[in-house]
Simulated assay, not measured.
Amino acid sequence: MSLGKEIKNIYDAMLKICIETSRFISVINDLFVKYGWNPVGGDRVMWDRSTHYAQPRFWLPYFQQRVFTTEQEPTKGVGINIIFDKASGELTNTIPFVSCCYIKAENSDTLNKHDEIYCAGWSETSKVLDETHSKLYKTVYPNRMTIVNYFLPLDVLSNQQAVESYIVKPLIELYKGNTTKAYEFIKSVCLTREKLSS
Rank of each mutant, 00 (worst) to 15 (best):
P96D: 06
F68P: 00
T70M: 10
K127L: 13
V78S: 00
T125Y: 14
K113W: 04
E73Y: 11
A54S: 15
R44H: 09
F58Q: 07
R44S: 10
W47R: 09
C101G: 03
S88M: 12
A87L: 15
I80A: 04
F97I: 06
Q65D: 03
G79Q: 03
T69A: 02
Y62E: 04
R66H: 07
S126H: 09
I80D: 01
E124R: 09
D48A: 14
P96M: 06
K86V: 07
T70R: 13
K113Y: 05
R49N: 13
L129A: 10
G89F: 03
G79R: 00
V78N: 00
E90Q: 13
S123Q: 01
T132A: 10
S123F: 00
T110H: 13
R49D: 10
I83V: 15
P56S: 02
T94C: 07
V67T: 07
S99P: 03
C101V: 02
C101D: 13
T92F: 01
P56E: 02
A87E: 12
C100T: 12
I82V: 15
F68H: 05
Y102C: 08
P56A: 00
H114S: 15
S50M: 09
E124Q: 12
E116H: 10
V45H: 05
P96S: 11
Y102G: 02
V78D: 00
H52P: 00
E71H: 10
T132S: 13
I95M: 15
K104L: 10
G79F: 00
I117H: 01
I82C: 06
G77L: 06
F84L: 14
A54T: 12
N112A: 11
F63P: 00
L129W: 13
E90M: 12
A87H: 11
L60N: 07
N93W: 05
T75H: 14
F68C: 03
V128S: 06
P74K: 08
E116M: 11
P74G: 05
V67H: 01
I82K: 00
K86Q: 15
T70A: 02
G89L: 08
L91K: 03
C100M: 11
Y118V: 11
Q55R: 11
I80E: 01
P74S: 08
W59N: 08
W59I: 05
W59Q: 04
S50N: 09
Y118N: 03
L111C: 09
Q55W: 08
D48G: 10
T94Q: 14
S99F: 04
R49P: 02
T51G: 07
